[in-house]
Protein backbone atom coordinates (compact mmCIF):
# COMPACT_ATOMS: atom_id res chain seq x y z
CA UNK A 1 0.00 0.00 0.00
CA UNK A 2 1.16 3.49 -0.77
CA UNK A 3 -0.42 6.84 0.04
CA UNK A 4 -1.12 8.76 -3.15
CA UNK A 5 -3.44 11.22 -4.83
CA UNK A 6 -6.17 10.26 -7.29
CA UNK A 7 -4.01 11.81 -10.02
CA UNK A 8 -1.09 9.56 -9.07
CA UNK A 9 -3.31 6.51 -8.74
CA UNK A 10 -4.72 6.96 -12.24
CA UNK A 11 -1.29 7.68 -13.62
CA UNK A 12 0.08 4.53 -12.00
CA UNK A 13 -2.77 2.39 -13.26
CA UNK A 14 -2.22 3.67 -16.82
CA UNK A 15 1.51 3.02 -16.69
CA UNK A 16 1.09 -0.48 -15.30
CA UNK A 17 -1.46 -1.43 -17.93
CA UNK A 18 0.71 0.04 -20.72
CA UNK A 19 3.70 -1.88 -19.40
CA UNK A 20 1.69 -5.07 -19.19
CA UNK A 21 0.09 -4.91 -22.64
CA UNK A 22 1.56 -3.23 -25.71
CA UNK A 23 -1.92 -2.93 -27.25
CA UNK A 24 -2.91 -0.41 -24.57
CA UNK A 25 -2.27 3.14 -25.75
CA UNK A 26 -3.42 6.67 -25.00
CA UNK A 27 -4.92 9.17 -27.42
CA UNK A 28 -6.47 12.58 -26.91
CA UNK A 29 -5.95 16.31 -26.85
CA UNK A 30 -2.73 17.39 -25.11
CA UNK A 31 -2.08 13.94 -23.61
CA UNK A 32 1.46 13.81 -24.98
CA UNK A 33 3.83 16.75 -25.25
CA UNK A 34 1.74 18.85 -22.86
CA UNK A 35 1.48 16.00 -20.35
CA UNK A 36 -2.30 16.03 -20.00
CA UNK A 37 -4.37 19.06 -19.04
CA UNK A 38 -4.80 17.58 -15.56
CA UNK A 39 -1.19 16.34 -15.57
CA UNK A 40 -2.27 12.70 -15.34
CA UNK A 41 -0.06 11.67 -18.28
CA UNK A 42 2.90 13.89 -17.42
CA UNK A 43 6.11 12.14 -18.51
CA UNK A 44 4.31 9.50 -20.55
CA UNK A 45 5.32 10.97 -23.89
CA UNK A 46 9.00 10.79 -22.98
CA UNK A 47 8.71 7.29 -21.57
CA UNK A 48 6.45 5.66 -24.18
CA UNK A 49 6.88 7.81 -27.28
CA UNK A 50 4.39 9.11 -29.80
CA UNK A 51 3.33 5.66 -30.95
CA UNK A 52 1.62 4.93 -27.63
CA UNK A 53 0.87 8.43 -26.40
CA UNK A 54 -0.90 10.05 -29.31
CA UNK A 55 -1.71 13.73 -29.37
CA UNK A 56 -4.79 14.34 -31.49
CA UNK A 57 -6.24 17.38 -33.20
CA UNK A 58 -9.19 19.03 -31.42
CA UNK A 59 -11.59 16.53 -32.92
CA UNK A 60 -13.75 14.84 -30.30
CA UNK A 61 -15.92 12.99 -32.81
CA UNK A 62 -12.83 11.46 -34.38
CA UNK A 63 -11.11 10.82 -31.05
CA UNK A 64 -13.96 8.61 -29.87
CA UNK A 65 -14.77 7.26 -33.33
CA UNK A 66 -11.19 6.35 -34.19
CA UNK A 67 -10.61 4.87 -30.74
CA UNK A 68 -13.73 2.75 -31.29
CA UNK A 69 -12.44 1.58 -34.66
CA UNK A 70 -9.02 0.79 -33.20
CA UNK A 71 -10.68 -1.15 -30.38
CA UNK A 72 -12.82 -3.10 -32.85
CA UNK A 73 -9.62 -4.01 -34.69
CA UNK A 74 -7.90 -5.44 -31.62
CA UNK A 75 -6.15 -2.52 -29.93
CA UNK A 76 -7.06 -1.31 -26.42
CA UNK A 77 -7.21 2.48 -26.56
CA UNK A 78 -7.59 4.75 -23.58
CA UNK A 79 -9.05 7.82 -25.27
CA UNK A 80 -9.15 11.04 -23.33
CA UNK A 81 -11.82 13.70 -23.64
CA UNK A 82 -10.38 16.72 -21.89
CA UNK A 83 -13.69 17.28 -20.09
CA UNK A 84 -17.04 15.58 -20.21
CA UNK A 85 -18.50 18.82 -21.56
CA UNK A 86 -16.77 18.02 -24.84
CA UNK A 87 -18.36 14.58 -24.86
CA UNK A 88 -21.49 16.31 -26.13
CA UNK A 89 -19.59 16.99 -29.35
CA UNK A 90 -18.77 13.28 -29.53
CA UNK A 91 -22.23 12.12 -28.48
CA UNK A 92 -22.95 10.22 -31.70
CA UNK A 93 -19.60 8.46 -31.65
CA UNK A 94 -20.17 7.40 -28.04
CA UNK A 95 -23.84 6.53 -28.09
CA UNK A 96 -24.46 5.37 -31.65
CA UNK A 97 -21.17 3.67 -32.32
CA UNK A 98 -19.01 2.74 -29.31
CA UNK A 99 -22.07 1.59 -27.38
CA UNK A 100 -23.94 -0.08 -30.23
CA UNK A 101 -21.65 -1.74 -32.75
CA UNK A 102 -21.52 -4.96 -30.80
CA UNK A 103 -25.28 -5.35 -30.50
CA UNK A 104 -26.17 -4.00 -33.92
CA UNK A 105 -23.96 -6.52 -35.71
CA UNK A 106 -25.09 -9.51 -33.67
CA UNK A 107 -22.08 -9.67 -31.37
CA UNK A 108 -19.43 -9.79 -34.11
CA UNK A 109 -17.48 -6.85 -32.72
CA UNK A 110 -15.82 -6.19 -29.39
CA UNK A 111 -14.99 -2.69 -28.18
CA UNK A 112 -12.31 -2.74 -25.46
CA UNK A 113 -12.32 1.03 -25.11
CA UNK A 114 -11.88 3.34 -22.15
CA UNK A 115 -12.91 6.97 -22.51
CA UNK A 116 -11.29 8.91 -19.68
CA UNK A 117 -12.81 12.27 -18.94
CA UNK A 118 -13.36 14.80 -16.14
CA UNK A 119 -16.62 16.05 -14.72
CA UNK A 120 -17.95 18.51 -12.19
CA UNK A 121 -18.53 22.14 -11.37
CA UNK A 122 -17.11 24.42 -8.73
CA UNK A 123 -14.21 25.94 -10.64
CA UNK A 124 -15.87 29.08 -12.00
CA UNK A 125 -15.73 27.83 -15.56
CA UNK A 126 -19.20 28.95 -16.50
CA UNK A 127 -22.21 27.15 -17.86
CA UNK A 128 -20.59 25.18 -20.70
CA UNK A 129 -17.61 23.80 -18.76
CA UNK A 130 -19.21 22.81 -15.47
CA UNK A 131 -21.60 20.02 -16.31
CA UNK A 132 -22.00 16.74 -14.43
CA UNK A 133 -23.91 14.85 -17.12
CA UNK A 134 -22.99 11.28 -16.16
CA UNK A 135 -26.67 10.35 -16.01
CA UNK A 136 -27.04 11.06 -19.72
CA UNK A 137 -24.42 8.47 -20.59
CA UNK A 138 -25.66 6.02 -17.97
CA UNK A 139 -28.98 6.10 -19.81
CA UNK A 140 -27.67 3.97 -22.67
CA UNK A 141 -27.24 0.21 -22.61
CA UNK A 142 -23.90 -0.79 -24.14
CA UNK A 143 -21.73 1.49 -22.01
CA UNK A 144 -20.25 1.15 -18.54
CA UNK A 145 -19.89 4.33 -16.47
CA UNK A 146 -17.20 4.48 -13.79
CA UNK A 147 -17.23 7.35 -11.28
CA UNK A 148 -14.53 6.84 -8.65
CA UNK A 149 -14.50 8.92 -5.48
CA UNK A 150 -11.01 8.14 -4.15
CA UNK A 151 -7.53 7.02 -5.15
CA UNK A 152 -7.97 3.39 -4.11
CA UNK A 153 -11.11 3.03 -6.20
CA UNK A 154 -9.76 5.01 -9.15
CA UNK A 155 -6.75 2.70 -9.33
CA UNK A 156 -8.70 -0.54 -9.10
CA UNK A 157 -11.55 0.61 -11.31
CA UNK A 158 -9.33 1.93 -14.10
CA UNK A 159 -7.29 -1.26 -14.26
CA UNK A 160 -10.50 -3.27 -14.45
CA UNK A 161 -11.86 -0.95 -17.15
CA UNK A 162 -8.75 -1.25 -19.33
CA UNK A 163 -8.78 -5.04 -19.09
CA UNK A 164 -12.50 -5.32 -19.79
CA UNK A 165 -13.75 -5.88 -23.34
CA UNK A 166 -16.57 -3.32 -23.20
CA UNK A 167 -16.61 0.45 -23.70
CA UNK A 168 -16.21 2.24 -20.37
CA UNK A 169 -16.62 5.94 -19.70
CA UNK A 170 -14.24 6.60 -16.86
CA UNK A 171 -15.37 9.84 -15.26
CA UNK A 172 -12.95 11.61 -12.93
CA UNK A 173 -14.00 14.60 -10.84
CA UNK A 174 -11.91 17.64 -11.71
CA UNK A 175 -11.78 18.87 -8.08
CA UNK A 176 -10.74 15.54 -6.54
CA UNK A 177 -7.35 14.92 -8.19
CA UNK A 178 -5.43 15.94 -5.05
CA UNK A 179 -7.42 13.67 -2.69
CA UNK A 180 -5.16 11.11 -1.08
CA UNK A 181 -5.68 7.51 -0.01
CA UNK A 182 -3.79 4.24 0.43
CA UNK A 183 -3.45 2.43 -2.92
CA UNK A 184 -2.36 -1.21 -3.34
CA UNK A 185 0.27 -0.49 -6.00
CA UNK A 186 2.30 -3.48 -4.80
CA UNK A 187 -0.23 -5.79 -6.47
CA UNK A 188 -0.04 -5.29 -10.26
CA UNK A 189 -3.23 -7.28 -10.78
CA UNK A 190 -5.32 -5.43 -8.21
CA UNK A 191 -8.72 -4.61 -9.71
CA UNK A 192 -12.12 -3.68 -8.37
CA UNK A 193 -15.00 -5.62 -9.90
CA UNK A 194 -17.07 -3.78 -12.50
CA UNK A 195 -20.53 -2.90 -11.19
CA UNK A 196 -19.86 -3.41 -7.49
CA UNK A 197 -20.57 -0.55 -5.11
CA UNK A 198 -19.15 0.00 -1.66
CA UNK A 199 -20.20 0.95 1.86
CA UNK A 200 -18.03 4.01 2.54
CA UNK A 201 -19.35 4.40 6.10
CA UNK A 202 -21.59 2.23 8.20
CA UNK A 203 -24.66 3.61 9.93
CA UNK A 204 -28.18 2.65 10.98
CA UNK A 205 -30.60 5.60 10.80
CA UNK A 206 -30.41 6.79 7.19
CA UNK A 207 -28.70 5.73 3.95
CA UNK A 208 -26.85 8.37 1.94
CA UNK A 209 -26.24 7.20 -1.63
CA UNK A 210 -23.78 8.98 -3.87
CA UNK A 211 -20.76 8.67 -6.17
CA UNK A 212 -17.65 10.65 -7.10
CA UNK A 213 -17.46 13.98 -5.26
CA UNK A 214 -20.90 13.45 -3.76
CA UNK A 215 -19.45 10.70 -1.56
CA UNK A 216 -17.21 13.24 0.18
CA UNK A 217 -20.17 15.55 0.68
CA UNK A 218 -22.18 12.65 2.11
CA UNK A 219 -19.31 11.64 4.43
CA UNK A 220 -18.99 15.21 5.68
CA UNK A 221 -22.72 15.34 6.30
CA UNK A 222 -22.53 12.01 8.13
CA UNK A 223 -19.93 13.46 10.51
CA UNK A 224 -22.17 16.39 11.31
CA UNK A 225 -25.20 14.16 11.72
CA UNK A 226 -23.35 11.96 14.16
CA UNK A 227 -22.93 14.94 16.46
CA UNK A 228 -26.70 15.31 16.38
CA UNK A 229 -27.15 11.65 17.21
CA UNK A 230 -28.09 10.47 13.70
CA UNK A 231 -26.18 7.49 12.35
CA UNK A 232 -25.80 7.72 8.57
CA UNK A 233 -24.62 4.94 6.27
CA UNK A 234 -22.90 6.09 3.08
CA UNK A 235 -23.07 3.99 -0.08
CA UNK A 236 -20.53 4.82 -2.80
CA UNK A 237 -22.02 3.61 -6.08
CA UNK A 238 -18.63 3.62 -7.85
CA UNK A 239 -20.37 2.61 -11.13
CA UNK A 240 -23.55 4.11 -12.57
CA UNK A 241 -23.66 1.29 -15.11
CA UNK A 242 -23.80 -1.54 -14.26
CA UNK A 243 -25.76 -0.14 -11.33
CA UNK A 244 -25.33 -2.20 -8.17
CA UNK A 245 -28.91 -2.03 -6.97
CA UNK A 246 -28.50 -4.76 -4.38
CA UNK A 247 -26.20 -2.91 -1.99
CA UNK A 248 -28.15 0.31 -1.56
CA UNK A 249 -31.43 -1.60 -1.38
CA UNK A 250 -29.94 -3.78 1.36
CA UNK A 251 -28.81 -0.66 3.22
CA UNK A 252 -32.22 0.94 2.79
CA UNK A 253 -33.94 -2.13 4.19
CA UNK A 254 -31.83 -1.60 7.30
CA UNK A 255 -32.27 2.18 7.68
CA UNK A 256 -35.65 2.66 5.98
CA UNK A 257 -34.66 6.18 4.99
CA UNK A 258 -32.59 7.54 2.12
CA UNK A 259 -31.07 10.74 0.75
CA UNK A 260 -29.38 10.57 -2.66
CA UNK A 261 -26.64 13.07 -3.41
CA UNK A 262 -25.51 13.88 -6.93
CA UNK A 263 -24.03 16.85 -8.70
CA UNK A 264 -26.14 16.53 -11.82
CA UNK A 265 -29.45 18.29 -12.29
CA UNK A 266 -32.40 17.10 -10.22
CA UNK A 267 -34.65 16.28 -13.15
CA UNK A 268 -34.20 12.84 -14.81
CA UNK A 269 -30.91 12.32 -13.01
CA UNK A 270 -28.99 9.70 -11.03
CA UNK A 271 -30.87 10.56 -7.84
CA UNK A 272 -34.17 10.14 -9.65
CA UNK A 273 -33.10 6.70 -10.85
CA UNK A 274 -31.97 5.55 -7.41
CA UNK A 275 -35.28 6.76 -5.97
CA UNK A 276 -37.22 4.81 -8.58
CA UNK A 277 -35.18 1.69 -7.81
CA UNK A 278 -36.17 2.00 -4.15
CA UNK A 279 -39.82 2.24 -5.17
CA UNK A 280 -39.41 -0.90 -7.29
CA UNK A 281 -37.50 -3.01 -4.81
CA UNK A 282 -38.15 -1.78 -1.27
CA UNK A 283 -41.42 0.13 -1.11
CA UNK A 284 -42.56 -1.82 1.94
CA UNK A 285 -39.42 -0.81 3.86
CA UNK A 286 -39.98 2.90 3.34
CA UNK A 287 -40.54 4.97 6.48
CA UNK A 288 -40.19 8.37 4.81
CA UNK A 289 -39.96 9.84 1.30
CA UNK A 290 -36.59 9.41 -0.42
CA UNK A 291 -34.96 12.83 -0.77
CA UNK A 292 -32.71 14.08 -3.55
CA UNK A 293 -29.89 16.57 -3.11
CA UNK A 294 -28.67 17.56 -6.56
CA UNK A 295 -27.39 20.71 -8.25
CA UNK A 296 -29.98 23.47 -8.41
CA UNK A 297 -32.03 23.43 -11.61
CA UNK A 298 -30.13 26.23 -13.33
CA UNK A 299 -27.08 26.48 -15.61
CA UNK A 300 -23.93 26.88 -13.50
CA UNK A 301 -22.91 30.54 -13.26
CA UNK A 302 -19.44 32.07 -13.16
CA UNK A 303 -19.76 33.97 -9.86
CA UNK A 304 -17.99 32.00 -7.15
CA UNK A 305 -20.64 32.54 -4.51
CA UNK A 306 -23.51 31.88 -6.87
CA UNK A 307 -21.91 28.73 -8.25
CA UNK A 308 -21.29 27.33 -4.77
CA UNK A 309 -24.94 27.99 -3.91
CA UNK A 310 -25.98 25.97 -6.97
CA UNK A 311 -23.96 22.88 -6.01
CA UNK A 312 -24.84 20.26 -3.41
CA UNK A 313 -23.02 20.51 -0.09
CA UNK A 314 -23.04 18.86 3.33
CA UNK A 315 -25.35 21.47 4.75
CA UNK A 316 -28.01 20.70 2.15
CA UNK A 317 -27.63 16.99 2.85
CA UNK A 318 -27.96 17.44 6.64
CA UNK A 319 -31.08 19.54 6.08
CA UNK A 320 -32.59 16.86 3.82
CA UNK A 321 -31.80 14.12 6.34
CA UNK A 322 -33.43 16.08 9.14
CA UNK A 323 -36.59 16.40 7.08
CA UNK A 324 -36.97 12.63 7.01
CA UNK A 325 -35.39 11.48 10.28
CA UNK A 326 -37.85 12.24 13.01
Amino acid sequence: MKMMTIREAISNALREEMDRDDDVFIMGEEVGVWGGTYAVTRGFYDDYGERRVRDTPISEMAIVGAATGAAMNGLRPVAELMTINFAFVAMDAIVNHAAKVRYMFGGQFTVPLVIRTTTGGGRQLGATHSHSPEAIFAHFPGLYIACPSNAYDAYGMLKASIRDDNPVMFVEHSTLYQKRAEVPVDDPDFMLPIGKSNIAREGSDVTLVSYSKGVHIALEAAEQLEKDGVSAEVVDLRWLRPLDTDLFIESFKKTNRMVVVDEGYPMFGVASEITAQVMDHAFDWMDAPVKRVSAEDAPLPYSRELEQMALPDAEKVVKAVKEIVY
Partner: peptide, 13 residues
Protein backbone atom coordinates in the same frame (compact mmCIF):
# COMPACT_ATOMS: atom_id res chain seq x y z
CA UNK B 1 -20.42 9.74 -41.78
CA UNK B 2 -20.50 7.78 -38.53
CA UNK B 3 -18.26 5.06 -39.91
CA UNK B 4 -15.55 7.43 -41.14
CA UNK B 5 -13.69 7.72 -37.81
CA UNK B 6 -14.10 3.96 -37.37
CA UNK B 7 -12.12 3.57 -40.62
CA UNK B 8 -9.45 5.87 -39.23
CA UNK B 9 -9.24 3.69 -36.13
CA UNK B 10 -9.28 0.40 -38.04
CA UNK B 11 -6.34 1.67 -40.10
CA UNK B 12 -4.44 2.86 -37.03
CA UNK B 13 -3.71 -0.77 -36.24
Amino acid sequence: GGHLPLATGLALR
